[in-house]
Simulated assay, not measured.
Amino acid sequence: MMSAAFLLSGCETNLVVLEPQGPVAQSIADLINWSIMWMLLVVVVVFGLFGYIVWKYRERPENMDYEPPEEHGSTVLEIIWTAIPILIVIALTIPTVKTLYALEEVPKGFENHEPLVIHVTSADWKWIFSYPEQDIETINYVNIPEDRPIDFRLTSAGTMQSFWVPALGGQKYTMNKMETQMYLVADNPGSYFGRNTNFNGRGYTGMEFEVLAQTHQEFDEWVNEVRDTAPKLTEDEYEELLKPTHLGRLTFSNTHLEWVNHADANSKSYTNPELYEYHGYQGRTFEEEDNYKNDSEADEHDHQHDEHEEHDEHEEHGGDHSGH
């Protein structure tokens, strides 16, 4: 998990995992730095010895006919170069295991803080965030209060995805009819990028979301605003949202947990396999710069886009859909 996160961070303009914005990400960054230190030590020693041996025992005019004496080996040297790698592996294993177990608990220093529970449901290709305590739901963005542990309950409505916010922590998989758990804390208010890192179709590259850490006052104001202004989500609308499409940001004043919890082993799967061969892309993630609630402008954009797709379908005469 750590190595994958480190490598994938190379896709960003900077190494986000080495600029942690929370205690969970800090522990991962410390583990990465610890591993890099040992790897650099091995590289320096190995290449140093390689250069020294090549130079010292190179062929020269004065030793052209040199024949080395027969060697029977050295027990001491054999023990040394066998013990050193074992000690290095132990030095890497102990902090790795300790860190991995610590990541499954509320971060140290926040044990007395009540976590905010947010259910995360992945669907092709969007992220659905449900706040059961606040009775609100968002799509493709999630607002959280700073300096408070967030208890993310991860699941999937269909295919498997990977939930990752590199500035705040590592990645975890979301799987249908299963639930994984992740604790994250943001040290300061700010906007943090999140995405799906698991290939599950051609739309996965656009499966992104924003984590907006707010002050406690700003978060409470946002919750009250959503309750007062956001529309209600119906079961039919929710099932339509789960189809394999890209969406912008949406906000609702209730949650889909009223009808289905995809982590339940007996829940229905919403894979819609008949739609995967030919499909279009409806909307774009983060269409509005600061769109934290549904508004008429976003609805008008979606309506225009739907008309455009309907026009394309008529032109195709029922053939292959080329998408956008």
Rank of each mutant, 00 (worst) to 15 (best):
N261L: 05
S296H: 08
L184M: 12
E315K: 14
Y238D: 06
I53T: 15
D302N: 11
Y204N: 13
N198C: 10
A230S: 13
E316Q: 10
H262R: 04
E309K: 12
E315C: 05
S9I: 07
H246K: 04
I150H: 03
T197W: 00
E137L: 05
T229C: 09
Y292V: 13
L92S: 04
Y101I: 09
R284V: 14
Y278T: 13
F110D: 07
R202M: 08
P61G: 12
E225M: 13
N63F: 09
L257D: 13
L100D: 04
G22Y: 00
I90T: 08
T234K: 02
M182Q: 06
H72Q: 12
E111V: 01
L41G: 03
E237A: 15
I94Q: 07
D312S: 07
V142F: 01
G10H: 10
Q21H: 12
E12R: 10
A213D: 00
P244R: 00
E114Y: 01
E237W: 01
V211F: 00
S9Y: 04
P166A: 10
N294M: 14
H113Y: 01
E309T: 07
D290W: 01
K232H: 09
Q161E: 14
Q181M: 10
V260F: 07
S267N: 00
G194K: 02
L40M: 14
V17P: 00
S269G: 06
N254Y: 06
F47V: 06
H308I: 01
F193I: 11
P115G: 11
L92K: 07
Q181H: 15
G203K: 02
K56P: 01
L92R: 05
F47L: 07
Y101Q: 15
V117P: 02
R153Q: 15
N294G: 09
E297G: 05
W127F: 15
V185A: 08
S156Q: 03
I150M: 02
E274Q: 14
P231R: 06
E218S: 13
T121P: 02
V226K: 00
C11G: 10
T99H: 09
V260S: 05
L168S: 11
E313G: 04
A4F: 09
N14F: 11
